[in-house]
Design a protein around this nucleic acid. Structure first.
Lengths: 356, 356
DNA sequence: TTGAGCGATTTCAACGTTGAAATCGGAGCG
DNA sequence: CGCTCCGATTTCAACGTTGAAATCGCTCAA
């Protein structure tokens, strides 16, 4: 005997409730929405009927009728990286505040998937998209963008052709670098440039720029051997290239260079994951942090207070980013022709043991 | 001048495409679904028209018609905890494999929010729910459960009244504890019981049970002072009580006891976050891990390979959990009357420096 | 006593899609 | 030459909800 073609779960509808309450189904709708006045006895009967049959509104029908889903899409490279996990946490929270749920998408940093996200996934489901892009630039985003409201996180280009929420990578990394210089470090390195030039000014590029800016301001220069790239985007890496593993491997390679670290006394990392890996490499090599080399990261990921030594890091205001992103995308939902804006979220330097 | 009542974004519909292609809108639908044969020239014209107007299917309408959304809900306590971030990553990936998107909800461990998740959120949106419950038990879940297919992650009760995917907490923690005993540890402690007895056998309780089982098997006994509870659920804690901060504070308190750690030579932690906090406390107190105290965690969170010392931990097969959970919930979607099952996901002990 | 006014309720239509079934048009066959 | 058959296409209705507007039933003022 084959399964009895369980076509629909056949939940109760407004009509079922209405039949029990002895009113028109429109009245049930009125009770639920609360926008139209309903007399007290009627409301009581309807609510009883709703409870009795266990009615639950069918959001698809509502969405079809009113043209809104109260859903947002959040697209990040890797939910498994602490920064993006924190971000998702904050976005889900911020969206909830305004009555929205969040659909999470992961791009793995894949340009094609990021473009697909920017273009709206080829279907209409959510009211807006918050995209944390890592492999595509403004031009590509503008070209791909569809009708769905879109807000992009992270910097690429100054020109405001897309709504963005950014944390100033140049200035923040300059501050972090200046902090090292102020504490007497003179031979600084940078870990985490991305060799792929095609994508334009990535966050890593901007952080490197901030690094150089601080050096220049102090009349210093960086040894090119101390500017360390991570590998290009690789879909096979489970967490991309801004990983602890990558930081560990690159730092080991740096130490294995013919001259060893050759006087390096400070290392600025493009993010905390790389810094965590670097810390381990230094620890294994018996290089004392911060005595011999000071290390700073970027993200202030939750584990940074617990690494050995605890990691000095740039702490972006992730909750602020999330709030701004959600507010921006909802502004676009309300008025699609609202001109693009770039919002800045604050950051601060959190000093811990690795660069006191 | 007020905004021109931007009622709908007015995207093109099947009818618009049909008008341009000179066919009925049903034919356009046929082209898109690909289930009904369409002649080559017609298909070409339709596809051109689709591209021309930038048509994108309205998922709400499809969902209303066919009764499915191809959406799943994942409900976790905190996306900001690595374990749940990993889980979300894995669930999103597993869902994508079968054509589903994932709506993420966070309960903060709040029993009310967990019940709301179990009951299906009072509205019909997604086809099924994967719930990682931390504060409610099987009985409560069964009582609250609504029509929406539900799969629960984590153990509570053996009786299979709800579909579950579990990793055996008792056995795995027994293994971890036995590993400490095998390496010569005799005075073991456990960090992370939850004092709240009302909720029944939580994961922490089961892990404690595994801990005791291993001791008993070795003819050992635990000093009650070495069984350390974390605080009860507290909505104000940003990451709940299984946090690095909590592990740090509780371990410090343990060290501050009148007798200090009093011979403690091994510590089993209910999860990696607590262990990371404990490692820091030991480090600050100058207590060598693993020489003086060996430490094991549970989760094998990504940072555990990079802590100082690297953390020995139980590694649940998170990808496996996710696959089983998605498969289970989809089985329920297909056949709501399918009897509840409990699926076991494997785990392994990953030996690192903290307990070699 | 009647009509205006108003809160409560109902009627009607539409949102965009797909399952089911009807229709169309040409190829193949007796 | 007419009939059947079958692939291609269209027609029809329905999914469950809400905006807009119509209607109902009452109170109150003239």
């Amino acid at each position: 005997m084959t399964a009895p073609s369980a076509r629909r779960s056949a939940g109760p509808t407004l009509k079922d409730v209405a039949a029990i309450a002895g009113v028109s189904y429109r009245t049930v709708s009125n009770v639920i929405s609360g926008r139209t006045p309903v007399s007290l006895p009627t409301r009581a009967r309807v609510e009883a009927a709703i409870a009795q049959v266990g009615y639950r509104p069918q959001l698809a029908a509502r969405q079809l009728r009113v043209g809104r889903s109260n859903l947002l899409t959040l697209s990040v490279p890797f939910l498994s990286l602490p920064y993006f996990a924190q971000l998702a946490h904050a976005v889900v929270g911020a969206a909830e505040q305004v009555g929205y749920d969040v659909v999470v998408d992961e791009t793995h940093g894949d340009p094609e998937r990021e473009l697909r996200a920017a273009s709206g996934y080829g279907a209409l489901l959510t009211d807006g998209i918050v995209l944390s892009a890592m492999s595509i630039n403004d031009t590509q985003i503008v070209a791909a963008r569809g009708r769905t409201p879109l807000v992009v996180l992270g910097e690429r280009i100054r020109a405001a052709r897309v709504d963005r929420v950014v944390v100033d990578s140049v200035t923040s990394t300059r501050d972090a670098t200046a902090h090292l210089i102020a504490s007497g470090r003179r031979r600084l390195g940078f870990l985490g440039t991305v060799p792929d030039a095609s994508s334009g000014a990535s966050a890593a590029d901007l952080r490197l720029e901030g690094f150089r800016t601080a050096l220049r301001a102090a009349g210093l220069d960086a040894d090119p051997r101390h500017i360390v790239a991570v590998s290009a985007w690789d879909s096979s890496a489970p967490d991309g290239d801004y990983s602890r593993e990558e930081g560990y491997a690159r730092t080991l390679a740096l130490l294995d260079g013919i001259d060893g670290i050759d006087g390096l006394d400070g290392l600025v990392c493009a993010n905390d994951m790389l810094a965590v890996g670097a810390l381990r490499a230094f620890r294994e090599a018996g290089i004392d942090v911060p005595r011999r080399v000071a290390v700073v990261g970027w993200d202030d990921s939750p584990e940074s207070a617990f690494t050995a030594p605890a990691l000095t890091s740039i702490a972006p205001d992730i909750a602020g980013i999330a709030r701004l992103a959600v507010a921006s995308v909802l502004r676009l939902v309300d008025d699609p022709r609202s001109p693009p804006r770039v919002e800045q979220a604050p950051y601060r330097l959190v000093r811990r043991e690795s660069a006191p």
